[in-house]
């Protein structure tokens, strides 16, 4: 255990949750640098290498490198327009980067195949709600198991064994996730009729029910009240602790991020200007210039 912390010392000491620490300890306990790099490569859940993206001349991302370790909560922050959402859209294959590649586990992609994303063990939420408004909360979450469905529509109509089993299993898991996120009382309501904060949480449920290795959260706390934000942060942490999920978190609100994340990357104008632990980020002059100053001004002039 000591050895592990030492090995990662150079990369910034990371407060792993107990279960992940155990997991890591079991993997590799060598202390030399080579071993550390080896461990880093093996424990990397996701990495972006020199990603650049532009939309018809407007540059969104320039040469971004970010790596995410298994089991960590990795935040990506930056002012509006810094390219945070573009980055998550690159990871989930919605955008194709002009240059660079995304590595998920052992696979390298120029453009991540969106339709295989769930099977690659990645689930995500959306900055602007992307729930299925015409489905109930429960059905939205059950839909999160779509990638596991093997039965055909004929089998489903006839109610054959496999279709029945799949459906029962999906409902069972969805029910558990809804309870975990304290959404059981609204499971029958149409998703579109819920208040904003709850819809955000349903999105989290839909993503979690897929039991992803990596969870991408695109501004999960945007537009929430302070109480709701704290609640959401608690759920994110609990999800990581309970399921060992690696979390990539995009946020605008730096306060929440500081307390929640293990490591933080800061984007500004499409470039990465800092990367490190919350303490390092807090002390980084460039971050203070580019982001913190802006953020505090923003608070005064909210609504502009």
């Amino acid at each position: 255990m000591q050895a592990m912390n030492y090995a990662f010392g150079g990369l910034g000491s990371v407060p792993f949750p107990p279960d992940v620490q155990e997991h890591l300890a079991g993997l590799d306990a060598r202390t030399d640098d080579g071993g550390a790099r080896h461990a880093e490569a093996r424990d990397s859940a996701l990495s972006l290498s020199s990603i650049s993206l532009s939309f018809g001349g407007v540059v969104a991302l320039t040469d971004i490198d970010i790596s995410v370790r298994k089991g960590e909560i990795r935040a990506i922050i930056g002012p509006n327009g810094a390219g945070k959402s573009s980055l998550i859209n690159v990871i989930s294959g919605v955008y194709r980067p002009d240059r660079g590649h995304v590595r998920i586990g052992k696979n390298r992609y120029q453009q991540v195949p969106t339709q295989k994303l769930a099977r690659l063990g990645i689930a995500r939420t959306f900055q602007n709600l992307a729930l299925f408004k015409g489905l109930s909360v429960l059905d939205n979450v059950v839909a999160g198991r779509a990638y596991t469905v093997r039965s055909t529509f004929l089998g489903q109509i006839a109610g054959l064994g496999r279709a029945r089993r799949e459906e029962a299993d999906a409902r069972d898991r969805a029910g558990r996730i809804l309870d975990f996120l304290h959404l059981g009382h609204v499971s029958g309501r149409l998703a579109g009729t819920l208040p904003y904060g709850l819809q955000k949480r349903v999105e989290l449920a839909r993503a979690l029910v897929a039991e992803p290795d990596i969870l991408l959260l695109d501004e999960p706390m945007a537009g929430m009240t302070a109480t709701e934000k704290n609640e959401m942060a608690g759920f994110v942490r609990a999800a990581r602790d309970q399921y060992g999920t690696t979390v990539v978190l995009i946020e605008h609100d730096i306060g929440v991020v500081m307390g929640l994340s293990d490591r933080i990357a800061v984007l500004d104008y499409g470039r990465k200007i800092a990367d490190g632990t919350p303490e390092e980020i807090r002390a980084d002059q460039r971050v203070i210039d580019a982001y913190l100053g802006v953020a505090s001004e923003n608070e005064d002039g909210e609504g502009i």
Partner: peptide, 10 residues
């Protein structure tokens, strides 16, 4: 309701 989200969840 949301084609992109549908694709992403598989």
């Amino acid at each position: 309701d949301n084609e992109t989200a549908a694709r992403i969840i598989g």
